[in-house]
Amino acid sequence: MIRVAFLKLTSCSGCLNQSLVALLSNEELLGKFEFAYFTELGLLTEDYFDILFVEGSVSNSKQEKELREFRKKSKTLVALGTCAVQGGIQSLRSGEDVEEVKKTVYPFPDKIDIYSDPKPISDVVKVDFAITGCPINGDAVVNFLRKYDVGGLPLILPESVCCECKRNGLTCVMVAQGTPCLGPVTVSGCGALCPSFQRGCYGCYGLRTWDLDKTRLEKFFDKLLKLGAPESMIQVIARGYGYRSYKYVRRG
């Protein structure tokens, strides 16, 4: 039996729910894997794990310590979702003074343990495999477990969302409707969910960074602004979902 654990840090549990739904609809998997640690199911055995899925970003010292301990107990660590991989939505607060906020909200701000910049888990521990998405596509977890079971890992072919759009025969929302869409610069994996409902992609899988430089990205953002995208949309991709990657994007 392969022992599997799900650890939750700062996050919304969306990825956990997606994994859970996907696992429950593939019952043959449940016989091969033993779920040792999964707080949502009340499973709390902490000895050792073959696979540790981590959802969420690291927001305070307590979480950092917990994550380090779990890493020591596990063979393979999989970052689950954009929060774990890149920082996620909470990264929107990056660069702002969290001490000020604490003072205005809480009577004893010293008791609140929180970092001003949330950390992706790769800042704290070694990550073996990453599944992006906000929330993730449950099939990705199932696919990972199946391939792990036969002794391999999924092959990741990072592409733009446009590829999935075109393969599914969807009409481009940006070109044909003028809807601002982040698909061209976003990592694929969702199956072009938003464009199939005539919405623009909002980049929840994170920026494609390996071949884009800042100049090209700025040009793309200019194009979005011309189409009437609000400045906040750019902020979300550049500081929220894509904060980490945007920071490390190569200069053009």
Binding site: E159, S160, C162, C163, V185
Partner: peptide, 13 residues
């Protein structure tokens, strides 16, 4: 190629 973002739309259409 300064404006290209490498999305691959041209290939697919």
């Amino acid at each position: 190629s300064e404006n290209c973002v490498g999305c691959g739309n041209c290939n697919f259409v």
